Amino acid sequence: MKLQLALDRMTIAEAIELTKQVEDSVDWVEVGTSLIKEFGMSSVKELKQAFPNKVIVADLKTIDNSRYEFEMAFEAGADIATVMGVSPLVTIDACIKVAQRSNKLVMFDLLNTSKEQVSDLLKYNEAIFCAHVSKDEQEETGAKNLGTKHGGLLTDPTLKLAAAGGITLDSLESLRKTINPSVVIVGSAITKANNPSEAAAKFKQAIGQGE
């Protein structure tokens, strides 16, 4: 299980500084949607330059104009870029083709994606499927249940699964028992902790104990 650090609602300099604090404990570094929207591809480029040995995830949440956006992200240094699972299949196809050409990966953000849409996506078995409880769901309704998302569609052991949305140390074991993701995406439980380095180390330890 990989630990992906989600960086949002901060400046590029703050993102780099925070990542330095937790670098030894995290595997993948996500340049969050808010960073990309506020600072553009410079955020991706600077994070990759600062951490060349880390897998950099550009959380584009692309839903249209996919070829252009994915080419920009990969040229800036991203190793993985995200597309919304609700996107038209022509958009998904374009993302996959750009990624294959660049020897990069695609992550499907399954936020608000129906079971039928998820079924259509299963043929793209080289992609990463991310079960996601949105920030608005967390903040406005308190929703945190990732385990029941998309029924039993994500139980295929050959699929690469990720999970995101309000994940804490306390919820990690439950998550492992339900969808057992290969990537756990953690944001505020690390970035807003009093001691981010210690918080990240505890996540790494908990992940290691379950393997």
Rank of each mutant, 00 (worst) to 15 (best):
N125E: 13
E14S: 06
T91P: 01
T148Q: 07
T19R: 05
T113S: 15
K123S: 13
S43K: 00
I16G: 04
K204G: 14
P52K: 05
A199F: 13
W28C: 03
G142Q: 00
R67F: 06
S171Y: 12
L121Y: 05
T91N: 12
T33A: 02
V83C: 08
V184F: 15
L153D: 03
K97R: 15
G151I: 01
R101Q: 15
V98S: 10
V83Y: 10
E30S: 11
V90G: 05
T191Q: 05
A99K: 11
G85R: 04
A81S: 10
I80T: 11
V183C: 09
V57E: 10
A81M: 03
S188Q: 03
T158W: 09
D27Q: 07
E46L: 13
A73P: 02
L89C: 02
E139M: 05
L111Q: 13
T178V: 02
G151E: 14
K202R: 15
K123F: 04
T19A: 04
K104M: 09
F51Q: 02
T191D: 05
R101T: 14
F74G: 11
L110E: 03
K97L: 05
S25I: 01
I179R: 10
V55D: 03
M107I: 11
N103R: 14
T148I: 06
K149L: 15
G142C: 05
H132S: 03
L7T: 03
I179A: 04
L47E: 09
D120C: 01
E140K: 15
V31A: 13
W28A: 07
T191N: 04
L121Q: 04
N103W: 10
G165D: 04
A163D: 12
D136V: 01
M107A: 15
L154Q: 02
I190T: 12
Q117P: 01
G166Q: 00
S134V: 09
L89S: 01
G166N: 06
F108C: 00
L5N: 09
I190F: 09
L159G: 06
N195P: 02
M10Y: 12
Q117R: 14
M10D: 08
T62A: 15
V29H: 06
L60I: 03
F129Q: 11
A143G: 08
A15V: 03
D109Q: 00
V186G: 11
V106N: 13
W28P: 01
